[in-house]
Amino acid sequence: MSEMHSPSDATSSNPSTENRRGFLFAAGSTLMAIGGVLVAAPIIGAAVAPGILPEKDQWISLGAVTNWVPDTTVLIKFSNPGGAPDDGITRENACYVRCMEAGKFQVFAVNCAHLGCPVEWFSQSRLFMCPCHGGVYYEDGSRASGPPPRGLFEFAWRIQDGMLEIFSGRLPGLQEGT
């Protein structure tokens, strides 16, 4: 170890050398810090960007309003807006459209409000049942029994040019407060 320090020991008495060393260290650490931040920004940014960027909800058409028969609930497929080509089959999504009377709807997410498992509609008993932990909902989406803390998640809907559209794009969750 001692021989490594010997050159500096020999010149340490020189104040100008001392200053130059201090300056070089300060400059070096500053440059490293700037460079580090510059490199880290895009790396970390790309990793966390999905959490910061605004959500991509869109109005999605589910088909002509006349498709639905009053007093029925049916499972409808739609494609996630803004999906990527490699999403494959997971680009598809589904929701339950309940038609109460002509032009009056409720649109439910298939995800159970407990932990997101797919609930199944039973038109015979007019109940939604969840296969994971046994959450059950009535036909209006309100909680009937089981662990869910609330009723089914609902999508906002509107009728545009005779088409039923829902406002969707993200996985529903308890934070949404819908």
Partner: peptide, 25 residues
């Protein structure tokens, strides 16, 4: 759904975990 239950940052954390707003590629 579990991550989403985190207070305040739940939604953002979930989006970071999923790489978007949906389960996808």
């Amino acid at each position: 759904a579990i991550v989403d239950r985190m207070p305040i940052v739940g939604n953002e954390m979930r989006a970071v975990m999923l790489g978007g707003t949906q389960i996808s590629g």
